[in-house]
Write a protein that binds this DNA or RNA. Structure first.
Lengths: 126, 126
DNA sequence: GATTGACTTAGAGTAAACTTTAAGGTTTAT
DNA sequence: ATAAACCTTAAAGTTTACTCTAAGTCAATC
């Protein structure tokens, strides 16, 4: 069992953000101590791992919440979850290909600038 | 010479966004007709190409504006611009590597789910 | 020359994802 | 037993990047 602070340190998400995620339905039914403090389990940590993974590949919180809700409904939503993940995967791959192209353009610009800079500096030396 | 509408169509940015970018200093001194309408040149289009490229690789508008301002100051800022682009390039590469790892995780999750789904469906057939 | 449609501005509004605040209850260490 | 640290909630505030609105000006066509 982990406190919100433990989980914050493990995940890199702030305690504020963890509460916010719970409120938004990204994390379901976190246990509480008799005093009302959150007690996270290993399963919660694992769920957070997937949440971060989806978030960091560009899925928005609403979609993540939808995914989590499907998971709660059990095996009958497996097909839908697979479809959702597959679609997300495709969009991430597309995004990465797009970025690769843009990166090439940045690289070319950089080479052009480096060349200009060399010319400028050697002109200054004279 | 292009109208704001032409440029909107060519770049995929809305006319609103083009005006906004200009206001934020991303695009400098767009020419006007006697009546006050914007007239974009080919150089403006090229500058917008670089802006979109930087934006689509995750640079925020403030940094892009800074880059544009440096470019306006001429050759003496070449070194700084090279440094800025180089740093950006590194961060894009890091981002892509990170995404690749997250994508692998999504892929593994997807494979696991697909397997579960197959098992679930074959159980349903019985 | 009047109508229509595109353009102008300043400024308000929006969405997403936090982040902070205020007011108060709980645990732990001294 | 009391202070310090940590937790609770609801709700307001922030940031980024737009997006829309209102009121008016300009250009092209009938």
């Amino acid at each position: 069992m982990y406190t919100i602070r433990d989980v914050s340190e493990k995940t890199g998400l702030s305690a504020h953000t963890l509460r916010y995620y719970e409120k938004e339905g990204l994390l379901s039914s976190v246990e509480r101590t008799p005093g009302g403090f959150r007690q996270y389990t290993d399963e919660d940590l694992e769920a957070l791992g997937l949440i971060c993974c989806l978030k960091n590949t560009g899925m928005n919180l609403r979609e993540i919440a939808r995914f989590v809700h499907l998971a709660q409904e059990g095996d009958k939503t497996l097909k839908e979850r697979v479809a959702l993940l597959r679609e997300h995967r495709e969009s991430v791959i597309a995004r990465m290909n797009e970025m690769r192209e843009y990166l090439d353009k940045v690289t070319r610009k950089l080479e052009y600038y480096s060349e200009m800079q060399r010319a400028y500096e050697s002109a200054g030396e004279r």
